[in-house]
Amino acid sequence: MPAGTGGSSIFLALDGAWFLIGDDLMSELDRAACTVPLGLSAKAFAEAAGTRLALAELVPPGALNLRGDLADHGFVSKACAVLGCELPRAPNSVQSAGELTVLWLGPDEWLVLTAPGGEISLAERLEEALLETHVAVTDVSGNRAHLRLKGAAAREVLAKGCPLDLHPRMFKPGSCAQTVLARTSMLLHLLDDAPTFDLFPRRSFAPYVVAWLVDAMRDHEGVFLNAA
C-alpha cells in the first residue's frame, strides 16, 4: 500500500517510482503548508497502490519541542499527565498514545507531535501545568517538513545517504534517530516493518531531500547476487 494517512495524498509518477506529495483532498491551506509545490490527481494515487516504494509528503503535524529534567519527578508526572503519554527515556525511542507521538531527541529533550493545529492548546496546557518547573515548551510546528517513505526497498534507499545502521536487528520499529541523510541532518522514525519511515527534515531542506530521495529511488534495485 502506498504511504499517506487518511487517504489524503497526491502522487507523482517519476521514472516508474511513485512519489506522493500532499493531497488532492487537502485544503489549500494544508497544501500551502507542504514544502514541495506539486500536485497530481487521485488517479495517480490509485495507480500507486501496490508499488514497491512510495514517498509522501504529509501535512506537517503540530509539533512542540519539550525540554525538562527526567530526574524531576514533578516535571515527568505533570508532563505525562497533560500529554497522556509516557516520555521516552531510552535514547532513540518513541512513545505514542492516541494521536500523540513523542520522540526522544536528547536526554532532556523531546519532540511532541500532534494533529496539525493541536499544538497551540497543547502548549498552553503544558505551560500551565509546568508553570513552576524548569522546562521549555516551544512551538516548532513550522520547523520541519514531514515525509514518509514506505516499501521493501526503503532501507536501501536511505542507506545511500544515511550512515546509520538501519538493519532490522539494529533499528527496530519504534526507534527514532537524529542523523544525517545525504548532505543534511535528518530526524528518522521507523513506524513498522514494512518498513515505513517518517522523515522530518528541516523545512528549508525539504525540496532538496525530496529531490535526493526521488533520485535515490529510481535505482533502488541493487545488483547483488542475493538480491530479492
Binding site: 519541542n65 525540554r67 532532556d108 524548569h134 522546562v135 521549555a136 516551544t138 512551538d139 516548532v140 510546528s141 513550522g142 520547523n143 520541519r144 528541516r202 523545512r203 528549508s204
Partner: peptide, 10 residues
C-alpha cells in the same frame, strides 16, 4: 534551555 526556531518562523 535553548531551542532552534530558525525554521519555525517566516
Amino acid at each position: 534551555y535553548l531551542t532552534s526556531i530558525t525554521e519555525q518562523w517566516t
